[in-house]
Design a protein around this nucleic acid. Structure first.
Lengths: 236, 236
DNA sequence: TAAATTAGCGTACGTTGGACGCAATGACAA
DNA sequence: TTGTCATTGCGTCCAACGTACGCTAATTTA
């Protein structure tokens, strides 16, 4: 039932008991150090050893404040997301747009978050806050509950994916185009459309507004569903 | 430059030389065994040791056919994707829809693929084939090269995400709704819209067609861009 | 038959995450 | 003040991981 992570993300108000030596470390310290390591060297570098070094403590000291690495990672993710923006108001499209772009900005600051949303299970308070904010923005639309959830999933997937893409594009060696280039040079004849699409884009050009494109396309799609809901006789 | 993975995914035609003992194992054997393990126990269980056991061989024997675990994983992914469907024709929407749904079906058969697309860099032949097929479906649209690439990214992200979601929903303990339920029971008052959305959906109902919803919304969005491209005076 | 090449694999090592228990600390009861 | 004992930090130990290295045996080629 409990994997322990839930308790850590949603801590019961502590009994405020004090006895024994004054703690030099706190959960926040550990999480902050973990985030610092991840920001600097990627999530793969987040080792109990490495985090402990960052704090000038011994590896096993961390286990007093964090049940294990899984829990540490979960706490780091929730902390990195931060608080969701306010999204109450009439214009659903504007608000959900802000929601998505704010999320993009937040994740861009901690690129490693994109690697974690894949594995994560239990949502923490921050993530729940984002959920709530997104649903609030869609509150006045005629969408069903399931459709609202699906819309949020759609948008957050797009945000995650475009952050990931931007990160990868940052170091030119790992870019998709760069990875494909040598392959296309040899096997290009087998992939004419691919060659065409990339050559049309120019090589360095297409400073991709993949985020903007994706969000606008999705919101267009949702908008057309909404307007159809409101008056089914409208355009197809 | 070469991380070695490229050479493995795009093998040069082998010199067909033969000397020394007859190989009991082949690259395909290793990759197949790896896929079998991943299918049965998840990608985390794919250990060199575990794969070797699967083949009745010693751990170090694998390294004769695969440069390392990274390479093995890359080969597994490309192999699991398989060949892309034919997508030539007039009706772009129908073809790209089939493309997305086929991809969904393919990945659903090997759910662990969703965990790998996050990390992967160099595309293999199969993935390139999917790329090419997707672009072929969009060939007759008035979209620019960059827009076509963005559209494919949008769709494949959605496919990946919904496969992941379906997998998670398969074992009820890990479902998002199930994970949220106990939290909402305690802190529900802080998340009224979330409670509303989930209660409206019913508890077991909403047998989510998240895939369908997402794809249709995206295609609606792309369609509206396309029709605007064709005649900018049309509907907004 | 001898030389050359190659597949399989045994050994060894560094790095992980984590169980366990000891020693120092310091709030409380006496 | 003095003992009690919960709590913190951490040293030790271990299993599991990926993989470098080199030996042995099989097989082709000369």
């Amino acid at each position: 039932m409990s994997d322990g992570v839930t308790d850590a993300l949603w801590p019961a108000p502590s009994p405020a008991r004090k006895r024994g030596p004054r703690p030099k470390l706190s959960v926040e310290d550990v999480v902050t150090a973990g985030i610092a390591v991840a920001d600097a060297e990627g999530v793969a570098a987040v080792t109990m050893q490495r985090v402990a070094d960052e704090l000038g403590a011994a590896k096993m000291a961390l286990y007093r404040h964090v049940r294990g690495k899984t829990e540490l990672i979960a706490l780091m993710l929730d902390s990195a997301l931060g608080e969701a923006p306010e999204t109450k108001g009439e214009n659903w499209r504007a608000h959900i747009g802000v929601w998505a772009r704010t999320m993009h900005e937040r994740m861009s600051r901690h690129p490693w978050t994109t690697e974690l949303v894949v594995t994560r299970t239990v949502p923490g308070p921050a993530e729940m806050g984002w959920f709530e904010a997104g649903l609030a923005a869609l509150a006045r639309t005629p969408l069903t509950g399931a459709e609202r959830l699906d819309t949020l999933a759609l948008l957050s997937n797009q945000v995650t994916a475009s952050v990931r893409q931007a990160v990868v594009a940052a170091n030119p060696e790992a870019s998709l185009a760069a990875a494909m280039a040598p392959i296309l040079e040899t096997y290009g004849s087998r992939f004419p459309h691919t060659v065409a699409a990339f050559s049309e884009t120019g090589e360095s050009g297409g400073q991709d507004d993949a985020l903007g494109f994706g969000i606008e396309r999705i919101l267009d799609g949702v908008a057309s569903l909404i307007s159809w809901r409101r008056s089914p006789t409208d355009s197809k």
